[in-house]
Design a protein around this nucleic acid. Sequence first.
DNA 1: GCTTGACTTTGCCGTTACGTCAAACTGCAC
DNA 2: GTGCAGTTTGACGTAACGGCAAAGTCAAGC
Lengths: 288, 288
Amino acid sequence: MFRIGDFSRIARVSARLLRFYDEIGLFTPAHADPQTGYRYYTVTQLAQLNRILVLKDLGFNLDQVRDVLSSNVGTAELRNMLLLRRNDVELTLAAESHRLRHIETRIAQLESDGALSAEDVVVRAEPARRFLSLRRTVPSFSAGRKLIVELRNHAQQFLPKRCPHTLIVIAHSPQFEQDELDVEFGYAIDDDELKINVPAGAIVELRELEAIERMAVCVRVGLPEDAHLVTAKIGRFLEASGDILAGPSRELFLQAPDLDRMHEAVIEMQFPVRSHASDEILSQYESR
Amino acid sequence: MFRIGDFSRIARVSARLLRFYDEIGLFTPAHADPQTGYRYYTVTQLAQLNRILVLKDLGFNLDQVRDVLSSNVGTAELRNMLLLRRNDVELTLAAESHRLRHIETRIAQLESDGALSAEDVVVRAEPARRFLSLRRTVPSFSAGRKLIVELRNHAQQFLPKRCPHTLIVIAHSPQFEQDELDVEFGYAIDDDELKINVPAGAIVELRELEAIERMAVCVRVGLPEDAHLVTAKIGRFLEASGDILAGPSRELFLQAPDLDRMHEAVIEMQFPVRSHASDEILSQYESR
DNA sequence: GCTTGACTTTGCCGTTACGTCAAACTGCAC
DNA sequence: GTGCAGTTTGACGTAACGGCAAAGTCAAGC
């Protein structure tokens, strides 16, 4: 029988932690003096404690450790938990190596430019949403603007009064095409539950706007004519980070005023990206 | 000027987070109505917020983000911070891939044995300490036991009354030698500040016991004759985890009673280990 | 038996970066 | 005026502990 101090020195665990584990019922002393409250541990408890530490090392949280130890879980379930853990660790591993590459990008930038550029480009995930849209091939962007009116006219009848929706323009043709632009104008529906019925023959079409796992995003204020500034920024970002474009870009109208006051518009430009190198690094771990 | 809800939707961060950032002074709204307390944000603040998100993405905590943004840090300092971050990320990366290998080891064990074996072997770091010892070559372990008495007799004069110390036995010769055992008996001094003077001619010698980064550890109770059980356990652990032995093993007497009651002793067996595979994985990232 | 110092107890606060209510107040449309 | 969506502050919860303080306990020395 050891008192908590001796036991903590032997087990190389702080006495505070032993008390904590006692408190949460994860690891209770073999004996506790009812008078004084003193905790007494036995050598055989060293093995128990070590089991806890091992499971913790594997990345399980204390609730899971408790479950495993109290044998609430059988072998099969334990195997599943381990497989889940492996998955999690692989994800964090991938995320961390991504992060590492970003950091190195920044260091390189700092050394060449002396400043952080491309600093307002952010990468994030974009969820899937329903999309009520029409798609056309137009000769120019300015011609495309008329499509906004057309979209509004044809879409409004299918949208309930107070249905939140966002105007999104998708550029299906590659950036620097000649004078044939394949663009899609549509409203993204935020409410997933809402029922919308669009007949087959309608001019607008209801489809799913795909989710994008990694979307490089930059906000622009003002006329679409300023878009090239943002494009250049994204270009520098891609160059620096080693990512590549992975799909048609989108323009999301965060704040869309009337057509005659477009310079007050707030537009988020979205570019799906894919990491060129991370696949290799990932396969490292996936191949085991 | 946006109210917090619109701004949060545009920036894709929760309103609660914006209030929190305001509260901690990281990101304050461009304007706040003194009457109502309503927060108002401008489009230009989107860029500021994005800068914050980028730095957070790189793994900086909010204090560091604040420092970087308030330009308390120059370019050189920022570079240093990035280098430090890179180091940290590389460490977590290495730790995670270690963890992944451990998890896979456990899965494999589970699939072959149907149970978790080697479960009470723990790997941890061992700090460097001063070591007051004598080293001999003896024919057998039982002969070695006399060395405990000799050590005590010769070491006591150099140790102050209440100096905490731990008996450690180091097996310098490989595990399964013939009948020549190179062993070292000594006391590890816990108090680093304490001055200890050992003359050059003394039988015991004061040296530094090296720190071990990864020490596989297992606690044993009772006679040294039972040591082979633990050795076998460690062996299985190494086999399963793919680690290899990386130095002389140690026996640390956690609770050393009198010589005639050795069966009550609590002994921690320590085996320095090195990961065979992790070096390759690490070099992956170190080579950039 | 008494003192002293080392040890232990409980309890409360702090950490990080937010999420989750709850009650009260505001803005805006009808 | 009224309803309702939006906003405010505030308090509490998270995971896994570390730190500190006041009070009680143990064992050894006198």
